[in-house]
């Protein structure tokens, strides 16, 4: 995998003050296609690595590149619309689901809202529902729809199923797979080996802010997949 072809490449990346590094001299490349899973124990730096990809976090040392371009040279607002993110806990904004979609795309009309909701498996009737009254799974899917409203080219998902029950988690996993099949690369953070084996086309294992393994899910988890 060459540097310019990589979806994201990390060159000697450190985050945090010396002595309390969350990432420590990390070097890695994420493939341009498919679903990349970032796994590792709690506190290993998985979320930090993901947040570097849309500049919610910046490295204290090293360079992060997206398709070969140093992210420090990119307009952060433009980058974030291109590299969308779904968070661990669904965060809905006050108002209806449609209001939430308009936060991402002010021009989002009823037809576009219905299209986005359908994309994440929610009925068009959800458009007028109060976002604060959705179940956990519905709220996470509404958040995914909101992230997709910016028409991103990459989707970052930070343990998006950790607050959901198994059924809602399975729905979200299927949606991620559908996005990947439709040509949108997904970077998915997980702490579950089973989820990693189910989902990952490529996996990166982090331990203590460093890469501890990379390759297929089977290679990273030591078989059993």
């Amino acid at each position: 995998m060459s540097g310019s072809a990589a979806l994201f490449s990390f060159e000697s990346v450190s985050v945090g003050p010396s002595g309390a590094r969350r990432l420590d001299g990390l070097g890695a490349e994420l493939p341009a296609e498919g679903l990349t899973a970032i796994a590792g124990p709690s506190g290993s730096g998985k979320s930090t690595l993901l947040r570097l990809c849309n500049r919610l976090e910046v490295p204290s040392a090293g360079v992060v590149r997206h398709h070969g371009t140093d992210l420090a040279q990119r307009d952060p607002l433009e980058l974030r619309r291109e590299v969308a993110m779904v968070f661990q806990r669904p965060v809905t904004f006050a108002g209806t689901v449609h209001d939430n979609l308009r936060e991402a795309d002010p021009g989002c009309d009823a037809a576009r809202a219905a299209e986005l909701l359908e994309h994440v498996g929610l009925d068009a009737a959800f458009v007028s529902r109060d976002a604060g009254e959705l179940s956990g799974g519905e709220a996470q899917r509404a958040c995914l729809a909101r992230a997709l409203a910016t028409r991103p080219r990459v989707l970052l998902m930070d343990e998006p199923t950790s607050a959901l029950d198994d059924r809602a988690a399975a729905v979200l996993e299927r949606l991620a797979r559908r996005l990947v099949d439709g040509g949108t690369p997904v970077v998915w953070v997980t702490h579950s080996d089973e989820q990693l084996r189910r989902l990952a086309d490529f996996a990166l294992l982090l331990v203590g802010g460093r890469i501890d393994g990379s390759g297929s899910a089977r290679e990273v988890t030591g078989g059993g997949g």
Binding site: L56, E78, R80, A84, F87, V91, F93, E103, R146
Partner: peptide, 13 residues
Amino acid sequence: RAEVEARLALGQP
């Protein structure tokens, strides 16, 4: 912070 970062992640200034 979670709500603010969710908004920032949508490309909001």
